[in-house]
Write a protein that binds this DNA or RNA. Structure first.
Lengths: 206, 206, 206, 206
DNA sequence: AATGAATGAGGATTCATTCAT
DNA sequence: TATGAATGAATCCTCATTCAT
């Protein structure tokens, strides 16, 4: 038993190692430079070995993709403890932004890269993750309606998309350095301020 | 003089030709497939020739970048004729979205690609274009304030960024297919509806 | 004893299984796609296991080679029941052709592939099979002579080779698609017609 | 002018060099071992250079294929000088066999390899060469009919295929070493003897 | 001004084989 | 007996770039 266990653990460990370095490469050098070869170099295994753990590059990508969503959900789950419905929605947005800024490569993979979707369009799982995320937002919008923060006739779908677009806009412009033109200001503060303003506008939904 | 003139003109023409085909390749086949070689093939010049007109691939990218901004400004300029300040702001957002959806590769280059910025961080021109764009928004926000649509104490910078983030969020999520999970709905309509809702929220700025 | 027996039987069974799937792969996907790995995948054993039963890929090839000859002989044996000596020879040719067309990969392995011979030149068995086959033809030629269909001074060796070359020529050109230039005709019919004509020419041996 | 000439010549020379080494590799190591890399190694150029002269491996193959047919036709053309129609046909067969034995790798490429046809099925040229070859045989069969060597009602198509199959059978079995089982005899003599016997059988067509 | 020729580096994969267990 | 894990070497091909001309 212990032998099988150890083998299992070792297998898992290498899988993790591959994913870790793949993620790191993504982070450090971007998607284009993330090749099987370079990952292999970094983990000091042969390229062929990676193919023992992942069918092909897309499979590796998919694994990273799913992992990233898991991380995102973990990051978002903390807001559940916020008692007030509206404050909870605000916390969700903040947590989303924070996750994006702290995990740029994962964020890119999930929401900004063409590659994974093109290659994996067929796979149903991909949409599930995104669906789950947007459903979370919708649920919170409904909560806000239930507690009188939003009008009853507000469409939760549209509202959720609006919220998502706003935070994604902020995160993605920041990650792609498009706020660098405001050189004289702290760009992260810019995001906070903007998000704060956005939250205020939401109050007209009452 | 006429000889120098002609040479000058010819030089400009070839520069234009290169840019034109580069743009076309971007549009038809995307960023990844746009290689110096392929551009050279299409203009029926040698790859080496391109290097006489552009230092390297990044330089070519920068030129396209600037050109794209010119196009964007053209697309946005039409809103000037809208008389009402608030309506003009709304029209601006709509025009921006429309431009993004209609010119996906240019939009990507301007606002979503890492490549041009990383390589050209030093160049001041890059920021100018973005600056000009955001300034345009700020101006319109000021107009809205002047005409009583927005409170006097509203910060035009933050507001402009918020507006930009919203429309960029919508456009970029759409371009990267992240609305595909709403399979049963017209995705462009989704954008319109969301933008419409966003506009309504702006009215609480009054 | 019974334990040893069982082990023996199991060993034989796995050997058979390997050969069976190797053959199937040959047939379904051709020689190039038949790799040790793919065979291993299909029998759901590890690639390393195959090396316990066959020294290397060539050894496996040799086994298939011998097996194929067994099949060929089975296919040819049916003609024994044809009473007339000349008709029997004709039937032999037809059976050979039919076997070739129906078992293209085996046929290739036996008569068209370089691989098995190069690697196994040393092995005597290889020639035995071919020898047995050509001997069969010679015997039938002798029968024809005995029954007055062929002149007594006809050299059975040369005649046998001529017969073999003719049918092999037809089969191999067909298998390698070299009759495709006769696009407007049924290629199998072409073979039948040609073989028929060839048989007629044999009558001048009388 | 002389510069362009020289460049042209150099280009041709390298093209020839590539083809020559490709052919040599075919001959020495067989089709499977003939890779772009190995060719590049032998000509001491980089693999990428080969792609400047040939679109891809198939293109290179096609060139070799056509070249080989040119050689074959040259080899066969000598028989034109044989005055007697039947002797001419015999000479054609002998020349074909001789060509095959002397140029094994070209012969394989033209008549025994799957690869070129699979990859280039679309290309019309391929069939043209084969067509031209078989037409040559048909013409000679017609000549034999015209001069009373063959019956008037003989089908030239079927006859031509029969002749082709016979010589191809002999050549291909020889090239693939399938005559090695007649160890005690000179294999080339075997071919001659067999072809001689075959020629005799043709006389019953009178 | 223009280019033909060349290449080193790198891309994703697949393979036959080995070896410790 | 069986295998999981690993790999070096190979495959075809594309790229941005340089340089002599």
């Amino acid at each position: 038993m212990s032998i099988a266990d150890r083998k299992d653990r070792e297998k898992k460990e290498l899988t993790e190692l591959i994913l870790k370095e793949a993620r790191a490469l993504f982070l450090e050098e971007g998607f284009e430079k993330t090749s099987i070869r370079r990952i292999a170099d970094r983990i000091e295994y042969s390229p062929a070995t990676i193919y023992l753990y992942f069918k092909d590059k897309n499979d590796l990508l998919l694994a990273l993709h799913q992992e990233s969503f898991t991380h995102l959900f973990e990051a978002l789950s903390s807001v559940a403890s916020v008692p007030d419905a509206f404050e909870r929605l605000v916390a969700l947005g903040k947590a989303y932004i924070e996750y994006g800024l702290k995990n740029p490569e994962e964020y890119e993979l999930m929401f900004m890269l063409s590659a994974p979707l093109e290659a994996l369009e067929c796979r149903h799982e991909l949409w599930c993750d995104g669906q789950k995320a947007i459903d979370l937002v919708k649920m919170m919008v409904d909560d806000c309606k239930a507690h009188g923060y939003f009008r009853k006739d507000l469409d939760p779908d549209t509202t959720a998309i609006m919220l998502w677009a706003q935070v994604h806009g902020l995160v993605s412009l920041y990650l792609k350095q498009r706020f660098k033109m405001f050189q004289d200001q702290d760009q992260k503060k810019l995001i906070d301020k903007t998000f704060g303003l956005f939250i205020k506008t939401l109050q007209c939904f009452r």
